[in-house]
């Protein structure tokens, strides 16, 4: 399989090359596009490393939403529109000498880490045997889902908490930012949206459902649905209004709340928190996943949208 080896080397080299290009691009827009392509190549790398779950998360979040988030911010820095070349182009690195020292330091550290990596034993048995042993009691048949929602469910709960914290901070920081209304997108996009949005919604539901036995699950599904909501926001199909605020708050917290309540609820009678009875494990995990999907989708859309929905008249008084 020398061809595959060549492919791997080429792909790894292009991943590193794109990372370098991302940092070297002068223009901010070019930097963001390079970063988006970097995400796609990373996803191919995950696929080669036999990590389809990670590849799914990467294409949904890394390549899709991160890029949109960065573009939205760049549009803001350019005075409201990407096409306007406002004051905010990415400034060139300032000081040559400091740059050299930084590069040297980071380079040395990376080389040392590389040597340590090569010196590490290959294929130390990880936790796969433990996972395989516990799979029958996990309630699902896909190992990554079992790890995420059963074996290490506590981590996953805290990950949803991180999302909640992020949306709270974004709302706190952003409310009161004046918004300039964007015109709806043109007819071509409307046609695209009519076809693509329902397909994406179905894809999201499919990913959620399949997660129990194949790669997929709450995060990927949430990311896809979040992207749908972003498309809706961009096209003004969805117009957040102050009246939506309680609903939005509810959607942000429902994943965390249900997850934590189930975790505490199953405790007792000799069971500790997060210890689902094997008979009900599948139902509980699906319930948690569904709620978490709602939260993730709503949160990602809100992170993209930014400010809490505020009526335009109140906006001025708030500032």
């Amino acid at each position: 399989m020398t061809v595959l080896l060549a492919f791997d080397l080429l792909l790894a080299a292009s991943i590193v090359g794109l990372a370098a290009a991302t940092l070297l691009m002068r223009d901010a827009f070019a930097m963001i596009v390079a970063f988006i392509v970097f995400g796609m190549l990373m996803a191919l790398g995950w696929a080669r490393l036999v990590a389809p779950d990670v590849a799914l998360a990467e294409v949904a979040i890394g390549a899709g939403l991160s890029g949109a988030l960065l573009l939205r911010t760049l549009a803001h820095l350019r005075g409201g529109s990407l096409s306007a070349q406002g004051g905010a182009s990415v400034s060139a690195p300032a000081n040559g000498a400091t740059q050299g020292v930084n590069a040297l330091l980071a380079g040395l550290a990376t080389c040392a880490l590389g040597l340590a990596y090569l010196g590490a034993p290959q294929n130390v048995p990880g936790l796969e045997a433990h996972v395989a042993d516990a799979m029958p009691e996990s309630g699902v048949t896909h190992p990554v889902t079992a790890v995420l929602l059963n074996f290490r469910a506590y981590d996953t709960l805290m990950e949803v908490v991180v999302l909640l914290a992020a949306v709270i901070v974004v709302w706190q920081v952003e409310r009161g930012l004046a918004e300039t209304p964007a015109p709806a997108l043109g007819t071509v996009y409307q046609g695209f949206a009519r076809v693509a949005l329902p397909v994406a919604v179905i894809a999201g539901g499919y990913l959620l459902w399949i997660g129990a036995e194949a790669p997929g699950g709450a995060f990927q599904a949430g990311a896809v649905l979040g992207a749908v909501a972003v498309l809706g926001l961009l096209s003004r199909h969805v117009r957040p209004a102050p009246a939506h605020r309680p609903l939005a708050r509810g959607a942000f917290v429902v994943g965390t709340a249900v997850f934590a309540l189930v975790a505490l609820g199953v405790a007792g009678a000799g069971r500790v928190a997060f210890e689902y009875p094997p008979a009900q494990a599948k139902t509980l995990i699906l319930l948690i996943e569904a709620m978490v999907t709602i939260s993730i989708a709503a949160t990602l859309a809100a992170l993209f949208h930014g400010r809490a929905p505020v009526a335009v008249s109140r906006e001025e008084t708030d500032r």
Binding site: A257, A260, L264, R271, V272, A273
Partner: peptide, 18 residues
């Protein structure tokens, strides 16, 4: 007694935050 106090020490502030 369940749930144990350590989990509660972590999750009670979380419920409060929500």
């Amino acid at each position: 007694f369940a749930p144990d106090p350590m989990t509660l020490a972590i999750l009670l502030p979380l419920f409060g935050a929500i």
